[in-house]
Design a protein around this nucleic acid. Sequence first.
RNA 1: CGAGGUGUAGCGCAGUUUGGUAGCGCGCUUGGUUCGGGACCAAGAGGCCGCAAGUUCAAGUCUUGUCACCUCGACCA
Length: 513
Amino acid sequence: MTKLWLIYKTVAKETDKTEKKNNMGKQNNNVKDEKFDTREAVKEIADINADFPAWYTDVVIKTKLVDYGPIKGTMVIRPYGYAIWENIQREMNNRFKATGHENAYFPLLIPYSFFLKEAEHVEGFAPEVAIVTHAGGEELAEKLVIRPTSETIICHMYSKWVQSYRDLPLLINQWANIVRWEKTTRPFLRTSEFLWQEGHTLHANAQEAIDETILILNLYEEFCKNVLAMPVIAGKKTQKEKFAGAIDTYSIEAMMQDGKSLQSGTTHYFGTRFTEAFDIKFQDVDKTHKYAYESSWGTSTRLIGALIMAHGDARGLCLPPKVAPIQAVIIPIATHKPGVTEAAASIKMQLEKAGVRVKLDDSDERPGWKFNEYELKGVPLRIELGPKDLENGVATLSRRDKAGEKFVVSLDEMGEKTPLLLGDIHENMYQKALLFMQSRTETVYDMEGLRAAMEGGKFALAMWCGEVGCEDKVKAELSATSRNMPFDQTPVGDKCVCCGGKAKRKIFFAKAY
RNA sequence: CGAGGUGUAGCGCAGUUUGGUAGCGCGCUUGGUUCGGGACCAAGAGGCCGCAAGUUCAAGUCUUGUCACCUCGACCA
């Protein structure tokens, strides 16, 4: 049996001691958690409308992150949560394949020497890589990095695969797990291990690679809108915020209900930085050898976190129908009365025929308990069926996105109406989220305006001079960061929001997860 | 890594000040009555009180050490 020892390398950070002293008195506001009751927690969280709802653990993970010290904040996803991920995978794969991409798989362990080849990349990831030093009972001659991302190992393989311009473009995606030894973790948003997809493509020239970067960014944006019912802001990252090793990084940013921004997907243009480091050359039509141009892009299980925080409410999860593991749940009432069980089974068959993911819950629990249970789980549509309904030839329905409202649909129309309802629920959820984001986005012109926006939990659209010093200042004073620069660069002013100097770019600032 | 906090039943916690039979709520099991918004009655099961050493007639409680977790910073998809 192979034994692995993970060595956690930290980069010592110099700390300003006077600052520490100043902070010492400020820690008294830690209020101890009261008794944990799901209902209470949900209510409380809805009231303060801040931060990550507590019920996500109950519904999606059910346990805390693994309760074992040496592995920091890794994830356990229960079947219900994983089913959401599978739906995300399916929808995303459809889109990748429609745009000519293929799936492949590369190794988990990366030789340390590969990892060292691109300087900026190493510098960016060194603090958070886990390294295998022993295997097979012996110390390894060369250490192995557990992938924090796969650029290096994939480029190593690509260098063997690419010889001619006819081999390009090379459009490959990988579904995999990743380890990044984060200092602070948070379920789904930042875990030391997470699942993701990473696409790595090679192109014959810069423009094609840049086009790919933008193509996928647009794909992500469309995916968030049409699958997750979540509006996002797409744009280019500043040099300060870009990916380690990239020339340009783009992101989609989603607004959570506390007004914080969540980077939900990124795409990168690398130029020839990695292809030069890994010697990926091809012979072009003009007979000369050239380095290929590269892009990479990824989204992760963070998307599940985004869903939870963008759509959740006081009753719990609220899942968009496209990714909901159960799209409709049938709850029979008074099953001992004649006809109820049969009618429920018949509706189930109708819905399955119509392509709806449906569950019939005929367990012993009381109806009231089930109502709450499936609302907590975010099931978009609930179908109640009891003796009173049967008398009238209808079922009583309740939409998760308009919880509380009930309406009836005649039994023989269930098959055709349910898919329409699910579509409408998606649309309503998207509009709600869009309105929320628009209402919490503000254009600001100076630091005071920016400060007010940040303190009010808003996105701030501003002009910026392009200097990293101003980004640093905003971060230091307001603990907010630049999110991205939208493609629509129509100016909203001519002065930098921070220094008042000549503005060059339009940019979003927000507090971020 | 800096500051603060917490480890007691599956989950959430009380008990520690002042040492003296291991408790509560939820959940779980069995039986019954219920069933249109988280039911009720009755009976039950479940504990190396994080770990180790020490003080004591006696330690969940005091002392020392140790392991781990949480929150907030700094860092990051």
